[in-house]
Design a binder for these strands. Structure first.
Length: 152
DNA sequence: GCCAACGTTGGC
DNA sequence: GCCAACGTTGGC
């Protein structure tokens, strides 16, 4: 099982991750229950994910990251100064969680445009109509195919 | 539990 | 900035 995780590069890009100590950072700001549940229930330490740049001039896959922690409460939900502050979340019953990720490698940039042009990837979640989930599973087959394309 | 209104996402 | 698609909210 692999993953694809979206981030707006103006908020947090792959280069921002690269600059972090140990190239690690908490994946904060997820405020969707389905995406949260993927982190709390299905993600395992050591699993790999594509780092995807969204909501920008050129959306696409920018690199590969690794899950390096179990899910734990997202601190930004308790920070009134944060744009991710959630007044309905209580410290003794947190609503939102995050995992930590580590940069494995920055790859050749693979634009969404190119992903769309590959028929064998038509079942990729982010290519499906109306998909907005910020964290989606990627199958072994899809992962290997994309890796091959990036390497080529 | 239904569902209309509203807010957000994200590519274009 | 537009707008389709989808998630969340809250009155009933």
């Amino acid at each position: 099982m692999y993953w694809l995780m979206k981030s707006e590069p103006s908020e947090f890009s792959i280069d921002d991750l690269k600059r972090q100590p140990k190239r690690r950072a908490p994946w904060t700001g997820v405020r969707n229950y389905q995406a949260r549940n993927f982190m709390t229930r299905e993600m395992k330490i050591g699993q790999l994910a594509f780092f995807y740049h969204s909501s920008c001039a050129e959306p696409g896959i920018a690199g590969i990251i690794k899950i390096v922690s179990a899910a734990y409460p997202d601190e930004t939900q308790f920070d009134a100064q944060s744009e991710y502050f959630d007044p309905k979340s209580a410290t003794d019953d947190p609503r939102w969680f995050n995992v930590d990720v580590e940069l494995v490698k920055k790859t050749r940039f693979l634009p969404l445009r190119e992903l769309k042009s590959i028929p064998a990837l038509s079942d990729l979640h982010i290519l499906k109509r109306g998909n907005r989930l910020s964290i989606t599973p990627v199958s072994d087959r899809q992962w290997k195919l994309v890796e091959k394309i990036i390497a080529a």
